[in-house]
């Protein structure tokens, strides 16, 4: 049941336990490239710069978290990588091709599950494969495999409104994985969940990630979540959004929530918090001076 999630492709970077080796391999194979990206929105109050000349790239197989204060443009960056938003200037490419519109090799999980309310869990997950021309039975087989993976076998025929928030978000993740995307974008997928469900979901995402071959860009404003999940954390400044720091997370995998007591983890977290605090002070001084 797991084989349809795996691609029969060469070496997934995640299969290699040593982070240094992983890093080297990854560097050689950039999959997402965001170059000098600016996004400007036209509003009744005039133009708003949401994202200001952001540049970064993500290697194949990497798990990158973007953190930053509310309104700094995290979702906007992610939507642009998804092809839902067009750059004002700069360029976004995935797999070497510019993102002009959504593409099935780039999947997305939103803060809200956005499941199709008229479809059962199975049909929600099978939607993507059906749209890509898979037969009914093929799509069903893919869906059933993923349902097993997210542990919702009992709910395969249930409708979304009968599921809890955590279960719905699991279905949304499975639905995004059904098309075997090379890139999975996640926009605060656990933001709407309570703390307990959230940490369960984080652990199951970590577990899931050991089994799938996808590059993940994960947006959150929770530092703990970012360090727990990521190979790299990009810290963004308050709007207009810029990348402040690109931080490698050299903690061993497989990880779980237990890692949050590890000294190396705490040191990293302190770094992040210091950076965010000084940035916050700088932004505050700037705004009160100007």
């Amino acid at each position: 049941m797991k084989q349809m999630v795996h691609r029969s492709e060469p070496a997934l970077a995640l299969a290699h336990p040593q982070p240094s080796l992983e890093g080297e391999r990854a560097a050689a194979r950039t999959i997402i490239s965001v170059a000098d990206l600016s996004i400007v929105f036209d509003t009744p109050q005039g133009q708003v710069i949401a994202v200001d000349r952001v540049t970064f790239s993500v290697a194949h197989g990497e798990f990158v978290c973007i953190v930053g204060p509310s309104g700094c443009g995290k979702s906007t960056v992610l939507n642009t990588i998804a092809g839902l938003e067009t750059p004002y200037s700069g360029a976004v490419t995935v797999d070497g091709r510019p993102m002009q519109r959504p593409r099935p090799d780039v999947g997305m999980v939103f803060q809200q599950p956005h499941l199709f309310p008229w479809k059962s869990v199975r049909k929600n997950i099978a939607h993507g494969p059906r749209m890509l021309g898979k037969s009914r039975s093929e799509a069903r087989a893919i869906a059933d495999g993923l349902i097993e993976m997210i542990g919702l076998n009992r709910f395969a025929d249930a409708y979304p409104h009968t599921l809890s928030g955590g279960m719905q978000q699991r279905v949304a993740i499975a639905r995004a994985l059904a098309n075997q995307p090379r890139v999975l974008l996640m926009d605060e997928p656990f933001g709407a969940l309570d703390a307990q469900t959230r940490s369960v979901m984080q652990d199951s995402l970590l577990e899931l990630r050991e089994r799938i071959d996808a590059t993940v860009v994960f947006v959150t404003h929770d530092i703990d979540e970012a360090i727990l999940l990521a190979d790299r954390v990009l810290i963004m400044s308050a709007g207009p959004g810029r990348i402040l720091r690109d931080l490698g997370v050299d903690l061993p995998r497989p990880r779980s929530n237990a890692i949050m007591l590890d000294p190396a983890y705490l040191a990293l977290k302190k770094d992040c918090l210091d950076l965010i605090r000084s940035e916050g002070r700088r932004a505050f001084d700037q705004s009160s001076a100007g």
Partner: peptide, 26 residues
């Protein structure tokens, strides 16, 4: 119709016609 549903459907490769017949209509 929930914009989020439309975006989710777009991300899954739903072609325009299916979008109208299925997502928008339902």
């Amino acid at each position: 119709v929930d914009r989020g549903l439309i975006r989710a459907a777009q991300m899954l490769g739903t072609p325009r016609r299916q979008m109208l017949q299925e997502i928008v209509l339902l």
